[in-house]
Nucleic acid binder design. Structure first.
Lengths: 337, 337
DNA sequence: ATGAAAGCGCTAACAA
DNA sequence: TTGTTAGCGCTTTCAT
């Protein structure tokens, strides 16, 4: 591996000058530059990232911490963030935490020791103190898919409450007269907000009873079980809003097994905008602007890394109702189950 | 941030000794060690990974390159690899290449400059030379989900040909009398092998004609289109083997739209063992031992990193037929929860 | 068993 | 415009 000194020697200039052309800063004669670039090429020189970051320069690496890589929502987010990161010249280190506080703290230590330039975090275990602590160590952090009220923490999250309300309204508009809700874990802010949205709309209707809400865990199997429970409590249910798409898929499977047809007997809507692609019949959902969350988070992170004084607070992004087959009876294609 | 020198000063020993306790090598008096550990604790000292790797030590980081993070197969693989990596004390850097050679080569440069200790690659664009080249630079590499015949390259891949044959046989056993095949991209070894497996079984049956094979792209939409095409060529088809689960899902959607019932009218089987979870009716598939591929790949990589002289060649892993609702007409409906 | 000192490859004053 | 040099935090001979 050629070093900066080799390049200096071959080109006949000093390491400082070579460093200048690498970093494109400081004055350097065009001819000199050309000579140096040539030397770098012939030596196939690649600066050592380790050395640069040791010498005080950034590592050009950011980390992304997610709770569950098996939930398609996060790969999509990761994809968006990676694309954006590449654009800014960063590589991303992906950390899957299993939503386990211990693992997360451990990762954070490792990441700091690796001198990552910044951190994008999707976590439901980390407390505000942890984030603030990081900031104190001057590690830029931006939170996604979660937020901390009125704390100076940069966060990007969808309008979950509004989304929950939109979902409920949509079911109502499709003629549902008794709508159940499978909600996600209560320790997740986004999950709570979605439920509140549902209650905003359904809570005061004459048919509403608390037992129409079943709590679950954001996973397919959990959704299945919750749907079975819901059906046993309220066999006459004709609409279901699941707190995320994965649970909606589980619910769909349960309905299928119990002989209920979707959307004919029961209309079903999810949240996230991911499963849409892989279920039959396709799932109506409240789509989050996943890609946008990713790019905005990355953009802000870069600003923070570069020391710009950005206002740190929560940003709420618009969600979008995506109507598919699971909530609409469409004569044109209702040929089979 | 406390440095090794701070620890040395506080504990009253030299940096060399501190280094020894960090790395647990060389002789150091138990009492001394205790004192130093205490000092490290009180200073909340964390060695700088950047400095260590500059000083010749490993970076404790490996990279995983995958072509498509949106295909659930790869998150599963990533998950397995990350788990294994953590166990060995490594952090993983995830690189999504979009199956784009340019991006991959670029990543490789970056990764080398970052001094990653090793590389696990799932790529269909990289040529054997690229891999060999890497090895020459003494970067340990192991390939997954692909392999290069008779070259000294460590690779882990499923028995795709056998899997294709198993899938075809299963459809035959379920009473199918005309089986179509949606195959994946021909530049992907695994994809080709699966098709060959199908041909091994169906190629000589009286009903077989080449037009029963439609080529596609491993994505849901591609599977959809391929199924539509297949149906127009052979409306009387009663079994379909899709080269991966994503295409199988697409095929299922197409069948649904065309009024064909699964499995009553057409039986459908995929390959991979992932979609299983999110489709209704659930998809029969040939499951790859994804987790095992991940752990074995990581295990070998570590051995290579540590300089053990391992035999580098391809390893073929067994696949498993997973029978679900999409290939079996079952009145009793075996429950799954 | 412990310490002194020479780098690892690079950046960033400071000089020239 | 270019060069000299002192670190960045750690590992690792080589002494002691």
């Amino acid at each position: 591996m050629a070093t900066i000194r080799d390049v200096a020697k071959l080109s006949g200039f000093s390491v400082a000058t070579v460093s200048r052309v690498i970093n494109k800063n400081g004055y350097v004669n065009p001819e000199t530059e050309r000579a140096i670039v040539t030397a770098m090429k012939t030596l196939n020189y690649k600066p050592s990232a380790a050395a640069r970051s040791l010498a005080g320069k950034s590592s050009s690496t950011i980390a992304l911490m997610i709770p569950d890589i098996l939930n398609p929502f996060f790969p999509e987010l990761a994809r968006a963030i990676e694309d954006a990161a590449n654009e800014y010249g960063y590589t991303v280190m992906l950390c899957n935490s299993d939503n386990n506080l211990q693992k997360e703290m451990n990762y954070i230590d490792v990441l700091i020791s690796k001198k990552v330039d910044g951190l994008i975090v999707a976590s439901y275990s980390l407390q505000p103190e942890h984030i603030l602590n990081l900031k104190q160590k001057s590690v830029p952090v931006v939170v996604v898919d979660n937020h901390f009220d009125s704390l100076p923490i940069m966060a990007f999250i969808s309008k979950n409450r509004e989304g929950g309300a939109i979902a409920a309204k949509h079911l109502l508009e499709q003629g549902c007269r008794k709508i159940g809700h499978i909600c996600g874990p209560m320790n997740i802010q986004a999950s709570r907000d979605r439920s509140v949205g549902y209650e905003d709309v359904c809570g005061r209707l004459h048919w509403f009873v608390p037992s129409l809400i079943v709590q679950s865990d954001f996973h397919v199997d959990g959704g299945y079980k919750a749907m079975v429970e819901l059906l046993s409590r309220h066999p006459d249910i004709d609409g279901v809003f699941a707190g995320n798409d994965l649970m909606a898929v589980g619910a769909m499977k349960a309905l299928y097994h119990k002989g209920k047809r979707v959307p004919d007997d029961v209309k079903l809507i999810g949240f996230d905008g991911i499963g849409v692609n892989t279920v039959v019949p396709e799932l109506s959902t409240i789509a989050q602007p996943i890609y946008e969350i990713g790019t905005m988070a990355m953009k802000r992170l870069v600003q923070m890394i570069q020391g710009e004084a950005v206002q740190e607070h929560s940003h709420e992004l618009d969600v979008k109702l995506v109507v598919k087959q699971s909530t609409v009876i469409d004569e044109a294609e209702s040929e089979s189950a």
